[in-house]
């Protein structure tokens, strides 16, 4: 995630990083609606296939492979749980091939859509994206503050953990598991107080800068909506339409129930 906060990182390859963050967000909404509504295998395969092409255009095959590994692990665990429960309640394992595959395809489609958004959206662009959305002040300001302070808190956490290492604490998954209360106190208390001091200082700065006293906001810079953003959304809608058409013609479960 650090690479996201590096303002001077070399421009990532491909067209995806240049896509407006609003288009990516809209795409994820379209994908969410599509994957929820479509329930036959053919439609899901279509959605999954196109979303995979979208994810591959990120040109970060390693990140995608790691995501697939994690996904496979989660699926394996879910199947394992199902099998165990099926030993006690055989009725639970009555779902056919469709019942097994469609839910996984849904999750895979969402993975393909959120991963590029996370890995190709630079935090610098995020502030411009927030400006461009013309959000109300009550959403814009806290969102901008979150964007501003996530890198700072990550740096703070590094300092806190180094300070603990120097004192002689050994922070490890096993250590946290053995001493959860102490671990929470050690890791969390400095961050809590840091949050309070930061919010106080920044709140004062916000007052002095007159943030929110004006009625409207004039963005200094915004991301410009380009043709590729429009084409991306059109492509997404087209894929969704095709998947729904497949659903209508080939059949599938409705939103409300099982077959």
């Amino acid at each position: 995630m650090r690479a996201l906060f590096d303002n001077n990182a070399a421009d990532a390859a491909g067209w995806l990083p240049k896509v407006d963050a609003r288009a990516k967000l809209a795409l994820s909404v379209v994908a969410a609606i599509g994957s929820l509504v479509v329930s036959n295998i053919q439609g899901q395969l279509l959605l999954c296939g196109f979303s995979m092409c979208y994810a591959l255009s990120l040109r970060k095959p390693k990140a995608l492979l790691w995501a697939y590994l994690f996904f496979t692990l989660m699926c394996g665990m879910a199947m394992g749980c199902m099998w165990i429960m099926g030993q006690f309640m055989p009725s639970l394992n009555k779902a056919g091939f469709t019942g097994l595959v469609v839910p996984f395809l849904r999750m895979l489609t969402m993975l393909h859509v959120v991963l590029p958004m996370a890995l190709s959206t630079r935090v610098q662009d995020l502030l411009n994206a927030l400006r461009g959305m013309r959000l109300p002040f009550c959403i814009y300001l806290p969102a901008a503050v979150v964007v501003r302070f996530i890198p700072t808190f990550l740096a703070d956490v590094q300092q806190v953990t180094e300070s603990l290492r120097l004192r002689g604490y050994r922070l490890s998954p096993w250590g946290i598991t053995r001493h959860p209360v102490q671990s929470m106190r050690l890791l969390f208390t400095p961050l809590l107080f840091r949050s309070l001091r930061t919010s106080e200082d920044l709140g004062i700065a916000a007052e002095l800068k007159g943030l929110g006293y004006g009625k409207t906001m004039t963005p200094y810079k915004t991301c410009h909506w380009a043709l590729r953003d429009t084409l991306l959304l059109i492509a997404a809608c087209a894929v969704l339409t095709a998947a729904l058409t497949l659903q209508m013609h080939l059949g599938g479960t409705s939103l409300g129930g099982m077959r």
């Binding site: 002040f137 009550c138 300001l141 806290p142 969102a143 901008a144 503050v145 979150v146 501003r148 302070f149 996530i150 700072t152 808190f153 961050l191 809590l192 840091r194 949050s195 930061t198 919010s199 920044l202 709140g203 004062i204 916000a206 007052e207 943030l211 929110g212 006293y213």
Partner: peptide, 13 residues
């Protein structure tokens, strides 16, 4: 503005 800043900082934390 101060209250919105508190919300943002705690969301980040």
């Amino acid at each position: 503005a101060h209250e919105l800043v508190v919300i943002g900082v705690f969301a980040a934390a």
